[in-house]
C-alpha cells in the first residue's frame, strides 16, 4: 500500500522545508550593508561552513546538500533526471567549445548531471559519441560538425538547446509524475516564448525559429513562429489567447522581468505540494524550491557585489516556495 508513496521521504522533506529561505530572510539580506554582511547572514543560516568560502563555493555546496539529501530519500535518483538534463547539455556545449578552441578553460562544467562532464569531454575530444546517452548522441554529433566545420557557435548552441528542451519534455511527460510533467511543459513553453521574443527583436528568420522552437502542449509553435516573424504585437495577441496571457506584461517590462515571471510561474504551480504528504511530487518541488532560492541568493549577492541599488535587486528576486 505504501509503495511509491514516499511517506518517509515526504515527512523528512516537511521538516527540511522549515529551513528554506523565505521572503523575510531575503528582506534581511537585502537590508545588509554590503556583500560581506550578506555572507555573514547566510553563514548564520547554515550556508557555508568555514566563513571563508566564495559565494560560488557556498552556492555549489548548497546544491550538493540538496542532492545528497535527495539521494538519501529516493532509492533511484534517476526519477529526477528531468531536472538534470539541462546540466548535461550545458556540459556538452562547454566541451564542444573547449575542444574547438583547444584550450583548458577552468570552471565551465556543471557537476550535477546524469553523466560526468569528463565522459562528455572525452566523447567530444575523441569524436566518439557512443559513450553518451542515446538522447544526446545525434545532437552532439550535429553540433560538433557545425562548430568544427563552420565555427558557428550560435547554431551549435541552438541545436543543443533544442535537444535539451525536447529531452526535458519527452522525459518529463514520460515520468508518470504530474509535477515533473508540468515542469517539463512550463520549461519548454517559457523557453519557446523567450526564443520567439528574442528572435523577433534580433530579426531572426523562419529557418532559425523552426530549428529553435520545441513543440509542447500549451503553445502552438507554428502560430508563435508566425507571430514572431510578423510584429511584436502579434506575439502579444497570440499569448493573450493562451494560458500565458500574464506573460505579456512581463515581456513588455524587460527581459529580466520575463525571466523572473517564468521562474515564479513554476514556483506558483509547485506550491500546493507543500500540503501533499504522498508521492514523488513534494520531493521534486523541494528540489525546485532549493534551486530557486540558490538562484535568488546568487542574484542578490551579485547585486550587492556590484553595488546595484536595492530596488534593482528586488525586481530580479524570485518568489519563494515557503
Amino acid at each position: 500500500m505504501a509503495k511509491n508513496q514516499y511517506i518517509f521521504a515526504n515527512a523528512r522533506i516537511r521538516t527540511k522545508e522549515l529551513a528554506l529561505l523565505d521572503k523575510p530572510f531575503f528582506d534581511q539580506l537585502l537590508a545588509c550593508k554590503n556583500y560581506d554582511d550578506c555572507l555573514l547572514l547566510l553563514a548564520n543560516k547554515g550556508w557555508g561552513t568555514s566563513g571563508e568560502e566564495s559565494a560560488e563555493q557556498i552556492l555549489s555546496k548548497e546544491r550538493e546538500k540538496t542532492w545528497e539529501l535527495v539521494s538519501e530519500l529516493v532509492e533511484d535518483i534517476s526519477v529526477f533526471d528531468t531536472f538534470l538534463y539541462g546540466n548535461d547539455f550545458h556540459n556538452l556545449k562547454a566541451a564542444i567549445k573547449q575542444v574547438y578552441i583547444n584550450e583548458e578553460v577552468p570552471n565551465i562544467y556543471i557537476t550535477h548531471g546524469t553523466i560526468k562532464p569528463e565522459i562528455i569531454y572525452d566523447a567530444v575530444k575523441k569524436h566518439d559519441f557512443s559513450t553518451l546517452p542515446e538522447h544526446m548522441i545525434k545532437c552532439a554529433d550535429e553540433a560538433y560538425q557545425v562548430q568544427m566545420h563552420t565555427g558557428d557557435s550560435q547554431l551549435c548552441d541552438v541545436i543543443i538547446d533544442k535537444a535539451t528542451l525536447d529531452t526535458i519534455y519527452k522525459r518529463g511527460k514520460a515520468s508518470g509524475n504530474e509535477l515533473l510533467a508540468e515542469y517539463a511543459e512550463l520549461k519548454v513553453a517559457s523557453a519557446d516564448l523567450n526564443i520567439a521574443i528574442r528572435g523577433f527583436k534580433t530579426g531572426k528568420k523562419k529557418e532559425f525559429l523552426e530549428r529553435a522552437l520545441a513543440p509542447c502542449d500549451s503553445i502552438d509553435i507554428n502560430r508563435l513562429m508566425e507571430a514572431a516573424l510578423d510584429k511584436e504585437e502579434a506575439i502579444y495577441d497570440y499569448l493573450s489567447n493562451t494560458v500565458y496571457a500574464d506573460a505579456v506584461q512581463a515581456i513588455k517590462e524587460s527581459p529580466s522581468t520575463f525571466e523572473r515571471w517564468c521562474d515564479n510561474l513554476i514556483i506558483r504551480r509547485i506550491r500546493p505540494q507543500k500540503h501533499n504528504p504522498f508521492t514523488l511530487s513534494p520531493i521534486a518541488a523541494y528540489i525546485l524550491a532549493r534551486e530557486n532560492e540558490i538562484k535568488s541568493v546568487r542574484i542578490l549577492l551579485s547585486g550587492k557585489l556590484n553595488d546595484l541599488p536595492d530596488s534593482s535587486i528586488l525586481e530580479r528576486l524570485r518568489e519563494m516556495y515557503v
Binding site: M1, A2, F8, A9, N10, A11, R12, T15, K16, P277
Partner: peptide, 18 residues
C-alpha cells in the same frame, strides 16, 4: 498493520530531523 506502517514511515522521517 498497513496503517501503523504508513504512520511509522512518516514518523521516522520526522524523527530523523527532529
Amino acid at each position: 498493520a498497513i496503517g501503523v506502517g504508513m504512520g511509522g514511515e512518516a514518523a521516522a522521517g520526522v524523527i530523523t530531523e527532529t
